[in-house]
């Protein structure tokens, strides 16, 4: 007779430096660790499955989706997971209160053709959200630009309206913002938190001399000092928020990152609201792409985790968004999610924030009265299933997390598979998540 409980096809396991066994399942997002004594039983179950659940260890494996009943069709589970994202009670809007920016970053890909959101678009967006709210369970707004804090009055106006609409219909609401941090004063942060903006992405590309070379003001002039003062002042607040300090690195700045991490430790270690995220600079479509000293893929894939480890060694947590990306659906790009749209300052609607000029990305228009016109032929290109059409993605252990849709733009442009950084180095990623999770408790 065969075994009744089989190992899931969505499992990965690895060992920590201290010899613990880590087991991850991408369909449930579970990560379990096992000591020496428990490992033989777990490894046997991961290899061939078991006849029936008996011990507490196998009970945990079953409850975590690491073992599944032999009759379960996991391909069907993955397919249903993708289908279940096509729902109308969720909404994610990426809103551009302005498309202008005060920075002139060397690697920026945006062309900044427009300034602040027009009064007509503001009125239309309020109407659209108010109408939609009655059908929603959850809503999420991402404030984006340009530099969104060049137009705080528009964020305020829209937030006030959204908060009223969502309160009226009891919609669970959260918001985040991608800002360069230049205007993120203590007073501004206090206001933003009141408007339910609790997740912040602020970029520092190295110590002052390095950062200012990469991310100076548009008319010239440094920005590091002012951002750093803002972050230090943010620490003095009692409010609940997370600030992801993003560090973009390239070949020239690899050796400067440790100095920045050391500086961050001096001022932020021990305050878990301040978290680190490392990403390689890319040729993202800007005018200076040819001159950018970008790292090779091999170097980038190594350094992301090396720097994250360096952060942990300096008591600086890894950004929670890394761990969240390993949850089911967590690595699917917003551009591929059917309930997500980008709203430009003039009411132009997009799916992707990295290719505003691309014709296929002009998916619709928001009208002054709140009506939305969508070109569903273009829309479909972004939200179609990547894992159903790509047999390699279909058979991959990471399928539930990314659904083959980590970056639909990359697949549309190149025809190639867009694997995430976490998936490329999954064992290192798991060990780093484990380090991060057990750091406080050790």
């Amino acid at each position: 007779m065969g075994n009744n409980l089989m190992p899931s096809r969505f499992n990965v396991h690895t060992y920590t430096d201290s010899g613990e066994l880590l087991v991850y399942n991408s369909y449930t997002g579970a990560i379990l660790s096992f000591s020496d004594g428990e490992q033989p039983e777990v490894l046997a179950a991961l290899k061939d499955g078991i006849v029936a659940q008996g011990s507490s260890v196998t009970a945990h494996l079953l409850a975590s989706g690491i073992l599944v009943p032999a009759h379960v069709d996991e391909f069907m589970r993955a397919k249903l997971l993708y289908q279940s994202s096509h729902r109308t009670d969720l909404m994610h809007l990426i809103v551009m209160p302005t498309e202008a920016c005060n920075f002139g970053c060397t690697y920026c890909y945006q062309t900044f053709p427009r300034g602040k959101m027009t009064p007509q678009t503001i009125a239309g967006l309020k109407q659209f959200v108010d109408h939609k709210a009655r059908f929603l369970q959850s809503a999420s707004i991402s404030w984006f630009g340009g530099e969104p804090l060049l137009a705080p009055e528009i964020i305020e106006q829209l937030s006030d309206s959204f908060l009223q609409s969502f309160a009226r219909y009891d919609v669970d609401y959260s918001a985040d913002i991608a800002t360069n941090g230049y205007y993120l004063t203590k007073e501004m942060l206090t206001k933003l938190v009141k408007w339910k903006i609790t997740r912040y992405m602020v970029t520092l590309d190295g110590p002052a001399i390095v950062h200012d070379r990469k991310r100076g003001l548009r008319g010239g002039g440094g920005t590091f000092e002012r951002i750093f003062v803002n972050l230090k002042n943010a620490r003095l607040l009692d409010e609940q928020f997370e600030i992801y300090i993003r560090v973009n690195f390239d070949e020239e700045t690899l050796s400067d990152v440790p100095e920045l991490v050391h500086m961050l430790k001096e001022h932020f270690a021990g305050d878990e609201r301040f978290q680190l995220l490392f990403r390689p600079v890319g040729r993202w479509g800007g005018p200076h792409d040819d001159q950018l000293p970008i790292c090779s893929d091999r170097t980038a894939n190594l350094k992301i985790w090396e720097f994250a480890q360096l952060g942990l060694d300096h008591d600086m947590p890894m950004a929670s968004i890394v761990e969240n990306s390993m949850m089911p659906g967590g690595s699917v790009c917003y551009a591929a999610k059917p309930y997500s749209l980008v709203v430009g300052a003039n009411g132009q609607l997009y799916k992707c924030t990295c290719a505003f000029e691309e014709e296929d990305n002009h998916v619709g228009r928001l009208h002054d009265d709140g009506r939305v016109d969508l070109d569903y032929d273009k829309f479909a290109k972004w939200v179609s299933s990547g894992d159903d059409t790509d047999p390699v993605c279909g058979a991959c252990y990471y399928r539930p997390a990314c659904q083959g849709n980590h970056c639909p733009l990359f697949r549309m442009r190149t025809g190639n598979r867009p694997c995430s950084f976490e998936k490329r180095k999954i064992r290192t990623a798991l060990e780093t998540v484990w380090q991060d999770a057990t750091r406080v408790r050790r």
């Binding site: 945990h60 950084f421 484990w434």
Partner: peptide, 14 residues
């Protein structure tokens, strides 16, 4: 055994 991250019920949640 330690639970580093709890499982979620996924459907109906470079």
């Amino acid at each position: 055994m330690k639970v580093i991250r709890k499982p979620v019920s996924p459907i109906g949640a470079a």
